[in-house]
Nucleic acid binder design. Structure first.
Lengths: 218, 218
DNA sequence: GCGGATTCGATAATTTTTTATCGATAAAAT
DNA sequence: ATTTTATCGATAAAAAATTATCGAATCCGC
């Protein structure tokens, strides 16, 4: 098959760092640099050079060269391929309030392989409008339309109270992965992937680090 | 001092899970339940019971009781105290475009101990307006005002290209922690905390999990 | 071409995080 | 009162992730 390596042995931690490498490499590419060393990446991104080498070798097709490092363009292509940035996955967005609208307007998703094909909202005033070029449909058509569009990814950007219901409808429509921006734990079957965008958790980590820094100073 | 335990020996992973426990516990409290067991929490949140016990014992003042579990109200108070949810930290928001507006309108932050006291934007059309009850000031007053307000936390919600400049200004004004929503790596001194809200990374992890699930099915 | 500097990949050591095991304890049931 | 049962905390084991070490490779300046 040729690419047995692909899905195997790439840790979640590594996957989480790949987008940062990707951005970094694109900067280097734009700056006209042909190669880059793990040492340099590690220094700039505040990581360990061995870790960078390991991460990259897990997904790179070509090995790095002694004294030169890795070929920037090749690495970008490798990450593109590995993360699926080069072929779009369809998704639906549920909830076009403040956050939902922001997400709909974020054109960057296309670069990450995500294509939002429809939006939904329970508020009749929002139904029929267009946000970020995406049409808004009534919430009660969710499951039916998702099924018809054959969409596998759902983005949940509704208020806390509504999130579980939305998740249920998405799953009823055949969605297999849910990106959850609502601050609740969603209850879903085993075979559904959920990724919580937990702002509270991020904030907790940030403020603990802040506390540490302030503490270490006096 | 009495609380030597506080900042010690609580791993970042644990801190990241605390907000989820907090939400869960509040649901239980609202449902009128007085105690809850690590087993139940683990089951509902899809975690390991030993891990839950360890996490909780790292921050709880009272031990859990055999056969009953932990006191819900006490635990909530403990997490509140530990994460600083009970005393507000001031922050400024930079950038009130789509995402910034959404963040400004998110009232939930107050519950997480975050109080946004001012917003900034480079667009003159936005300056002077109010978003989510927060006044928008011109970007060139950033450093000065941050210093005067004595704010330690900055939220960056500007386009990629502007983010580094904003970070520099925030730091010049005395900010010590930056919550970065722009898809770039920020270059900051050692003694500044940065937490990237990396949507691309989340999405990468979600879609890899989706791929695994789909793969394991056929 | 030759020698030095730099980086790589592989392997090993360390650290951190997660999970398993088990005796002790206290509530609930008999 | 005694037994049963669910749960805890402590300790140990396992797994995962990070970091260190080192010989080999190859580019670059001379």
């Amino acid at each position: 098959m040729g690419n047995e390596k692909e899905l195997l042995n790439v840790s979640k931690a590594t996957i989480g760092r790949l987008p940062a490498y990707h951005r970094y490499l694109q900067e280097k590419l734009a700056a006209g640099e042909k190669t880059v060393s793990s040492t340099a990446i590690a220094e700039d991104l505040h990581l360990n050079a061995v870790q960078v080498r390991k991460d990259l070798s897990a997904i790179a097709r070509e090995a790095g060269k002694p004294k030169l490092g890795f070929a920037v363009a090749d690495l970008i292509a490798d990450i593109d391929r590995f993360l699926g940035y080069d072929n779009l996955n369809d998704a639906v967005l549920v909830g076009v309030g403040g956050l939902g609208k922001a997400l709909a307007g974020y054109v960057g998703f296309k670069n990450y392989g995500l294509n939002i094909v429809a939006a939904f909202d329970a508020d009749p005033a929002r139904v029929g409008t267009t946000v970020g070029g995406i049409k808004v449909f009534p919430a009660d058509e969710l499951a039916r339309l998702v099924r018809r569009l054959n969409v596998l990814i759902g983005i949940v950007a509704v208020p806390r109270e509504a999130a579980q219901g939305v998740a249920d409808e998405l799953i009823k429509g055949g969605v297999r992965a849910i990106w959850n921006f609502a601050p609740v734990h969603l209850n879903v079957p085993e075979n559904i992937a959920v990724k919580n965008e937990d702002m509270a958790a991020s904030l907790a980590i940030l403020s603990k680090r802040l506390a540490e820094i302030l503490n270490s100073e006096k």
